[in-house]
Design a protein around this nucleic acid. Structure first.
Lengths: 107, 107
DNA sequence: TTATAATATCGTAATATTGCAATATAACAA
DNA sequence: TTGTTATATTGCAATATTACGATATTATAA
C-alpha cells in the first residue's frame, strides 16, 4: 500500500490525474502564474519571486516539466521555461466537458 | 519538512492548488467521470464500478467533498453525490486565463 | 427487536511528497 | 585556467497519501 493503483485505470484517466496532480501544489500554481506574466522566464526570477529555496523551486519545475505542463529550453547559463498550452488544453477540455453536462448536478 | 508551506502563498493560490490536488488521483478522476454520466450516484455503484475496496472509495469521496468538488446529500440508506460545478468553474477559469495569454508561450 | 444493506471511520503498513543544506554541473567571463 | 553565476542533483528528515481489513454507524426491512 501507499502506492496509487494506476494499473487498474485507463491511460486517459491516469494522464488527466497526473496533470492535475502536477498542478496540485501552491508553489507550482505560483510558478505557472508567474510564467503567464513573463515574456521569458528564468529560474532566478522565480528564486527571487517565491519564498522557497532554490533546490525546492528546481524540484517543482522538474515536476511540472515531467508532467509536460512546462517546457524549458537552455539559453546560455539560464533556462527559459514556458507553459505548454497543449497540456493545459487537455485539462481545460476535461473540465469543460463536465460543465456542459447538466445531468451532472442532481443535489 | 514534508509539509507544504502554504502560509507563504496567497489564499487564491492555495485554493486553486487544493482543488487541483483533489483531482490529482486516477480514482478521483474516475469518480468524477462516473458522476458525469449518472443521473444520481450512490456509493455502491462506485464500489461496483471501480476496482477499489469500499473504504478506499469512501476516502476518495471524502477528499473530493472536502475540496468542495462534489456534494453529497443523504437519501435513505444511500447517499447521492454530485458534482459542484462552481468549483469546476474556478479551475476552468484559471486554465482558460492561461490559454488566452499568448505571451505565455516563448519556447 | 433483529437482521440487513449502505456508507463511514479507525488503525496501520507501505510508499510518496516536501523542503532544504550540501554539493555537483555547466556556461560564460576575466 | 580560475572565478562566477545559474541551475540541477543528492541525501535525508519530517510529514502526507494510499489502500484496505476490521469495525462502527445509520437507516430501513422483516
Amino acid at each position: 500500500m501507499g502506492t496509487t493503483k494506476s494499473e487498474v485505470f485507463s491511460e486517459e484517466i491516469n494522464e488527466l490525474a497526473s496533470l492535475f496532480k502536477a498542478m496540485g501544489h501552491p508553489a507550482r500554481i505560483a510558478i505557472i502564474q508567474f510564467l503567464r506574466t513573463q515574456e521569458k522566464c528564468i529560474c532566478t526570477d522565480l528564486v527571487n519571486e517565491l519564498p522557497l529555496a532554490q533546490p525546492t523551486i528546481s524540484q517543482h519545475l522538474k515536476e511540472l516539466k515531467n508532467a509536460g505542463i512546462i517546457q524549458g529550453s537552455v539559453s546560455g547559463t539560464s533556462i527559459c521555461y514556458c507553459l505548454n498550452l497543449e497540456k493545459i488544453s487537455v485539462l481545460d477540455s476535461f473540465l469543460a466537458s463536465l460543465k456542459y453536462d447538466q445531468s451532472a448536478t442532481c443535489c
